[in-house]
Simulated assay, not measured.
Amino acid sequence: MKRIFNHKDFDIETEVDIGHDDFVYGNYVDWDRFRQECEIEILEYFEIYLPWGKEISIEEYFAFISQDCFTDSSMISDFSLDSLPVQGTADSISEIVIEFPRRNRDMISAIFDYHEVPSGFEQEYELPEELQYWPNIIEEEYDEYDYYMNNPI
């Protein structure tokens, strides 16, 4: 079953957008930077282990490619995971050793896209309410100036 990214499961650092007049326009998130800085945590969150550049057994290989993100997408063929080189010779199938490819940012990005990890740049109005500086709830309770005075940077 496909597991979807949930921003509430991560400590996402927002940046504050301040104008020349020192008025806070709101938060923003650079999701590409988040993806890069939290790559290991995100992969662990989805329980994906990528044995970059290592030799793996045939059993480990089949366990790897049977993960949802590979079986439910074209990543196996896109990244030539179906034609990895076999190391040496073996007397039995269980002794076959496969060399896993070196680190590939495009594969990581494809895995994150499959699990719907956001990418790009999102401004205040595009962010989930929990990440906003000026959450929509305050429109009914305060005006922006009062909220800003009570919650300065």
Rank of each mutant, 00 (worst) to 15 (best):
I98G: 05
V29D: 04
F62R: 15
E60V: 05
R103N: 12
F23D: 12
E126L: 11
C69S: 08
I108S: 08
Q123P: 01
F121Q: 07
Y147E: 03
F62A: 15
Q36T: 15
L50N: 11
I98N: 08
I18P: 06
D146C: 06
A110N: 02
E37K: 14
E47I: 05
Y45G: 05
N151K: 09
E144H: 13
C38G: 11
A110Q: 08
E47L: 07
R102V: 14
E95F: 04
S92P: 01
N27C: 04
N136T: 14
H20C: 12
Y142W: 10
Y114E: 02
I93C: 14
D68Y: 15
V24D: 00
V29F: 01
S119P: 08
D82Y: 00
Y114F: 12
R105H: 09
F100Y: 06
T14Y: 01
Y133I: 04
A90L: 10
Q87H: 15
I48R: 06
Y45W: 01
S77N: 14
A110H: 00
Y142I: 02
R103Q: 13
P128T: 06
I76A: 04
S73N: 09
A90T: 07
I56F: 07
W134S: 08
D30Q: 08
D9K: 05
K54H: 13
R33V: 11
Y125V: 12
W31K: 05
Y49G: 11
E47A: 12
F5E: 09
E44W: 08
Y142H: 05
F70C: 02
P128W: 02
V29A: 01
Q132L: 10
Y145P: 03
D32Q: 03
E141D: 13
E95Q: 11
W52L: 06
E13C: 13
Y148G: 12
F46I: 01
Y61R: 00
D30W: 00
